[in-house]
Design a protein around this nucleic acid. Structure first.
Length: 657
DNA sequence: AGCTTCCTAAACATTT
DNA sequence: TAAATGTTTAGGAAGC
């Protein structure tokens, strides 16, 4: 019975005369000695022992054959064919993870080999101890171990060390081979692609076949005794992913050798099963054809029940998955480093509370300032990281500073396009805060409009007013890009200051300063969403807000929180109005929600606008002195009134320059 | 296609 | 007077 199993096992492997011949000699000798060994131990061979012996013989034969086959499959340059004597097959039998070095070399990618090697070393040490204290009859089946069984521990350890050394050599050889074949890049870290290539299906299949042949004596014993090991078969099969399960046109060794009658465990299988597909069992190394789900389940329970073999297969599968995960982690780490190098945000998992330190300027953008309306996508991030899941949607796509030079005018200063960004946008403060160093040092155009930059510069200033020259300085200080083509962009700045109503020129004793009329700024674009809480909410929950990354959302949440928590907000109609009009970016959208959804009744923009003096609407207030909203900033250096602060959208508390 | 926004350029006026 | 500052117009590009 087990003999049949063994023969079938051998038969199902691809024919390899050399392998078989060598296999025969090996297993024959081993078997003979095993009998003697058993006799020495028990005096007679029980039926169970006989079964065990036969099974182990068969398994050993299969293993040796595989070993030979693996050696034969090695590339011609691989001279590390291993003599069977050097392979502690018995150890492999005892430890399901144990795979012959040749097969490892063929099956696993370098990182996998690395991990497996380490694990194997540990197992070997275990086995050394184990062998030293116990007499393992089943381990003496193989010729190699038969000789070892009579040796002292030191000899065994030496053999194991040789084994380890050889495995390491094989591993290196394997790497070289793969590199020669172009399967593995010359870099130390293989890419996922190379990993997949290295772990081609046939390799994995071999691995599984090998593992399928691994059965402990305990299992043989249990099988002989008809023990039911399948009680947890469903768990054993479902718990482990079949990430690397493969389909190979080879018949499974396992199919032929497992004759253990297994009880049907009542697995609850739906119409589909992860291990069943295309009419065949997808258990690693098994390709048994199953006409239907019922048959498959029966097959699963019979052939892949909870036993040592299945456990070993699961272990290998786990290792495969583990290795893949490790590899994934490495690659992810590399990606992070790459992105970090390119100043891409996902690479810099900054905590939200990261100080927004604009060191060079000596100014700090408070997190409150992240609520600034305005904003454009994170340029470096969006520009080159289509993979980042955090920044999808319109805000991501917009112009990036990395490509702005590609179009338009022949000058070095390309247009600052805002497009989508202005609508869903990233708060400029957040953007700048997180990439201030980038913009400071890289000659990259910020993806913000002149207007938004000017506004930000003004709002960032302690008094929310800047002279033209101060605005210039802010530009050059914050952006390396604006340290050249000064005539062009300065002209643009002046042009924007004059053109946009949102910028209010205020005469000062020392000259003129520029301030921001927030209402006008918000009015720059059609208030598509103004006053519509539903739309706002939809936007937030949907495309716009949902497309923001976590930090942005956190910033927005915090900004909205600060708004809600702001006593002045609740007491200042002007603030509410101001919030109400915001529409062109996320922060203002949030504010809208706050005002429309959770705060007091909204007031019309007009109610607020009277406090702000727009250029084309000079009023008596402006005539006699200056707008109320500007008074505080211009005439006093005092903290802004609460309404003013709210009006300015959570402006940073002054601690700048 | 038309509208809007933005950018760039430039001319011109005003202020320092 | 020159430079800085401010205003305005024009044209092109791009998105909607």
């Amino acid at each position: 019975m087990m003999v049949e199993s063994a023969s079938e096992t051998i038969r199902t492997t691809p024919s390899n005369q050399n392998g078989i011949s060598s296999l025969s000699s090996q297993s024959d000798g081993g078997g003979g000695r095993e009998g003697g060994s058993k006799g020495d131990t028990n005096g007679e061979i029980s039926p169970v022992d006989l079964l065990h012996l036969q099974q182990q013989q068969a398994l050993q034969a299969a293993r040796q054959f595989l070993l030979q086959q693996a050696s034969g499959l090695n590339s011609p340059g691989n001279e590390l064919k291993q003599s069977p004597v050097q392979v502690p097959v018995s150890m492999a039998m005892m430890s399901p993870q144990m795979i012959t070095p040749q097969q490892m070399q063929q099956i696993l990618s370098p990182p996998q080999l690395q991990a497996l090697l380490q694990q194997q070393q540990a197992l070997m040490l275990q086995q050394v101890t184990h062998t030293h204290t116990h007499s393992h009859t089943h381990t003496s089946w193989s010729q190699s171990h038969c000789s070892m069984s009579g040796c002292q521990l030191g000899t065994k350890q030496l053999a194991f060390q040789q084994q380890l050394i050889q495995m390491q050599q094989l591993q290196q050889q394997h790497i070289l081979n793969l590199q020669r074949q172009g399967l593995v890049p010359l870099q130390p870290t293989a890419t996922m692609q190379s990993l997949q290539q290295a772990m081609c299906p046939s390799d994995l299949q071999q691995l599984w076949k090998e593992v399928s042949g691994v059965q402990s004596s305990e299992e043989a014993l249990k099988q002989a005794e008809g023990l039911d090991l399948s009680t947890n078969s469903s768990n054993s099969t479902s718990v482990f992913p079949k990430a690397a399960s493969t389909h190979i046109a080879l018949h499974s060794l396992a199919n032929g050798q497992s004759h253990t009658p297994k009880r049907d465990s009542h697995e609850e299988h739906a119409s589909s099963h992860p291990l069943y597909g295309h009419g065949e069992c997808k258990w690693p190394g098994c390709e048994a054809l199953c006409e239907d789900m019922g048959q498959f389940i029966k097959h699963l329970n019979n052939e892949h029940a909870l036993d040592d073999r299945s456990t070993a297969q699961c272990r290998v599968q786990m290792q495969v998955v583990q290795q893949l995960e490790i590899q994934l982690a490495k690659e992810s780490e590399r990606l992070q480093a790459m992105m970090a190098h390119l100043h891409m945000r996902p690479s810099e998992p900054k905590p939200f509370n990261q100080p927004l330190n604009l060191a060079s300027s000596g100014s700090l953008i408070k997190r409150d300032s992240e609520a600034y309306p305005e904003g454009l996508p994170h340029p470096p991030t969006s520009a080159a990281t289509p993979i980042t899941p955090l920044r999808q949607g319109p805000s991501v796509i917009s112009s990036s500073s990395l490509h702005t030079h590609s179009h338009s005018h022949t000058h070095g200063v390309g247009p600052i396009r805002r497009r989508n960004s202005d609508k869903y946008c990233t708060p400029i403060a957040s953007e700048l805060a997180q990439n201030c160093e980038f913009y400071k040092n890289a000659d990259v155009r910020p993806p913000f409009t002149y207007a938004s930059l000017i506004r930000h510069a003004i709002l960032e200033s302690p008094d929310r007013q800047l002279t033209l020259n101060e605005i210039y300085n802010w530009f050059t200080r914050k952006f390396a890009y604006f340290r050249r083509n000064t005539a062009t962009w300065k002209n643009a700045v002046r042009h924007n200051l004059s053109l946009h109503k949102c910028f209010v020129r205020v005469e000062n004793v020392k000259g003129a300063v520029w301030t921001v009329d927030e209402v006008e700024y918000q009015k720059r674009r059609p208030p598509k969403m103004t006053g519509s809480p539903t739309l706002v909410k939809n936007m937030i929950s949907g495309l716009g807000f949902g497309s923001l990354n976590a930090s942005y959302q956190a910033a927005l949440a915090e900004s909205s929180l600060s708004l809600l928590n702001s006593p002045s907000l609740l007491t200042s109609p002007a603030s509410l109005n101001m919030l109400h009009v915001g529409h062109d970016d996320v922060s203002s959208t949030v504010e809208q929600v706050n005002s429309n959804g959770s705060c007091s009744p909204t007031l019309s923009p007009q109610q607020y606008s009277h406090q702000v003096h727009v250029k084309e609407e000079p009023t008596e207030l402006e005539e006699d002195s200056r707008p109320v909203s500007l008074l505080a900033g211009v005439t006093h250096s005092l903290p802004l009134p609460s309404d003013e602060r709210d009006l300015e959208e959570d402006l940073p508390t002054e601690e700048l320059e």
